[in-house]
């Protein structure tokens, strides 16, 4: 599998929101806990719709949850 350049702050946001568990976040967005774990670890890139759902749960804009790593200076 090619690695994704998308990083995320879900773990930090979960802890900032009363230490929300992965299971609780999974229930809120209607996925399995394993999918939340995979997204957090960068092993799965969610769809745009799921990404917006995650951002809505935390009440923050999308780019506070997901970041696109462009450190190598490549044009996306």
């Amino acid at each position: 599998m090619r690695p994704t350049r998308v990083t995320n702050s879900i773990r930090v946001l979960r802890f900032a929101h009363n230490e929300m568990t992965q299971a609780e976040l999974a229930d809120r967005i209607g996925v399995t806990r394993q999918t939340v774990i995979a997204i957090e670890r960068g092993r799965y890139s969610p769809s745009l719709e799921m990404a917006f759902q995650i951002a809505r749960v935390f009440g923050v804009p999308l780019d506070e949850v997901f970041q696109y790593n462009d450190s190598e200076g490549e044009t996306p």
Partner: peptide
């Protein structure tokens, strides 16, 4: 029961 769910990634 919660593990039986099938989501988009599945």
């Amino acid at each position: 029961r919660s593990d039986g769910r099938k989501d988009q990634r599945d």
